[in-house]
Amino acid sequence: MKRVENVLREHRYQRSHIIQILQDIQVEFNYLPKEALEYVSQRLKIPLSKIYSIATFYAGFSLNPRGKHLCTVCMGTACYVRGAAAILNEFERKLNIKPGATTKEMNYSLETVNCLGCCAIGPIVVYDGKYIGEFKLKDIGRILKGRA
């Protein structure tokens, strides 16, 4: 909770910063732990239901722990017309999870994003923060194998 307290202090305990606070907590923990949200609710006197409402409204927040590796498939229009749906399908099949979920052994999380603004080089997959442009179906095997 010290880490959460630090985040709150950085935002000078301003209630209006709640979205930014949640973003920073997510950077800190890689997701939004329940205990952290309860703590924020208590410290800032914002009802937990409201914080939860924000956390479930904005797509950028994850309430579940993510896996070691994060694969984000861009589903922007430009990527879509260049075959992003097939890439997502293949990820789903290979990892056996739906977007937004994490594999059982907590190795991979699969997510989608509306647009990364790199439309010119689509389809794009972001793997652990690295942008891979002109992604091909066969690249999936490659990056998943490179896990070690």
Partner: peptide, 9 residues
């Protein structure tokens, strides 16, 4: 009281 709110979207 703030027990209820809209959740998800």
């Amino acid at each position: 009281a703030g027990i209820l709110d809209f959740q998800h979207r």
